[in-house]
């Protein structure tokens, strides 16, 4: 089956000017997003995962700019858009975004119903008349699992709990009838049980509305739950890209190994957890070689000299590490990850 590319990013570079210095936040990222998929972007804070997605909506901070590459959507190059008016046609209606803190996304002075209705009126011109808009809003409230929608319509955001507020934000995003939904850590501020419910909800809505979802998170456990495809980001680059099964059961990049094996979910009581020593690189400076090399105890000599290209593991799986070069020595992934893989072999997929 030929996959239908909805958004295509080609060698994107983003820089920020900060106190007279230049910070190279996105260092050449290429990515094709397929229609109807759920792609997860994983990485530590500062890896550039949020900055990367903000480019799709023209939401970079004032001191940030795109210094190279292109973003193709519907035959349009989004990097060429400058005026707010040009963006307006895209924001919400084509690409919508859900942020981490629902209280910061909602207007505290307007009732929840009015806020969703506003989105309906702006983005769905065919819905005419007060009662039609109201019916539509009530439908969205029901879709996101808010009980008693008639009563809730008239309430203000402060009368909702954190999880319910995030549901309202999701309803608002849906009311724009977007093609692509970007979820930027939508569950980080929520309790684990609520997190599980919101994720389930997002997956159901994705099917119902035929959305393409980009899910930004630092939590690999959540990724296993939502994503069909995973992109691991480090220091402004994608270092590994593959189907969820490939990333979890057959990871190839040392950074993905390190991220996975440091999860307490895989740790045993009394044994030390694997850690990633050191800190992410300073992006004010030009990075030479593999950005992860200084933190990688098994780094090869070439890692400090030359940046690795993307090596192909399978048609869907690519990793940016010299370990995949035929001349590289054999380096085995950490033992905890082998356990994850063997459990799959025993139980079957």
């Amino acid at each position: 089956m030929e996959k239908d590319i909805i958004l295509s990013v080609k060698d994107l570079h983003v820089k920020f000017t900060l106190r007279g210095q230049e910070l190279h936040a996105i260092r050449g990222v290429s990515l094709d997003l397929y229609r109807g998929e759920c792609l997860a972007l994983v990485g530590e804070s500062g890896s550039g995962k949020s900055v990367f997605c903000k480019n799709f909506m023209g939401l970079l901070d004032a001191n940030g700019f795109i210094s190279g590459g292109e973003i193709l959507y519907n035959g349009m190059d989004l990097t060429k858009l400058k005026k707010p008016l040009e963006w307006r046609a895209l924001r919400g209606g084509e690409i919508a975004m859900i942020m981490q803190d629902p209280m910061a996304s909602l207007n505290p002075l307007k009732t929840v119903g009015e806020q969703i209705a506003e989105a309906v009126r702006l983005h769905q011109k065919d819905v005419a008349g007060r009662s039609a808009v109201r019916e539509k809003v009530l439908g969205y409230l029901r879709d996101v699992g808010i009980g008693e929608p008639e009563r809730r319509y008239k309430q203000y955001p402060h009368e909702f709990s954190g999880g319910m507020r995030q549901r309202v934000v999701i309803a608002t995003a849906l009311a724009c009838s977007p093609k692509i939904l970007i979820c930027d850590e939508p569950t980080t501020a929520l309790d684990v049980t609520i997190q599980a419910q919101i994720i389930r909800l997002l997956l159901d809505l994705k099917e119902k509305y035929g959305l393409t979802v980009i899910f930004i998170t630092h939590d690999l456990g959540v990724v296993a739950n939502v994503a069909e495809r995973v992109a691991v980001m480090y220091a402004g680059q994608i270092v590994e890209l593959g189907m969820a099964e490939e990333i979890f059961y057959d990871p190839r990049h040392p950074y993905t190994w390190a991220l996975l094996s440091s999860l307490p979910q895989l740790g045993e009581r009394g044994e030390e957890l694997a850690t990633i020593r050191g800190t992410p690189p300073n992006l004010f400076k030009e990075i030479r070689g593999d950005a992860f090399a200084p933190r990688n105890p098994q780094a090869l000599k070439i890692d400090f000299v030359m940046e690795p290209p993307f090596f192909r593991v399978s048609d869907t799986h690519y990793a940016k590490t010299w370990l995949l070069d035929p001349r590289a020595p054999e380096v085995a992934p950490p033992a905890v990850l082998a356990a994850l893989r063997s459990r799959r072999e025993v139980n079957g997929p």
Partner: peptide
């Protein structure tokens, strides 16, 4: 319910998980 909500780094298991509320 709390236990069922733990996100595990294991896609096969996560996709077939029954969520207890």
């Amino acid at each position: 319910a709390l236990l069922s909500a733990i996100p595990m780094p294991d896609p096969d298991r996560e996709r077939h998980k029954k969520l207890t509320v």
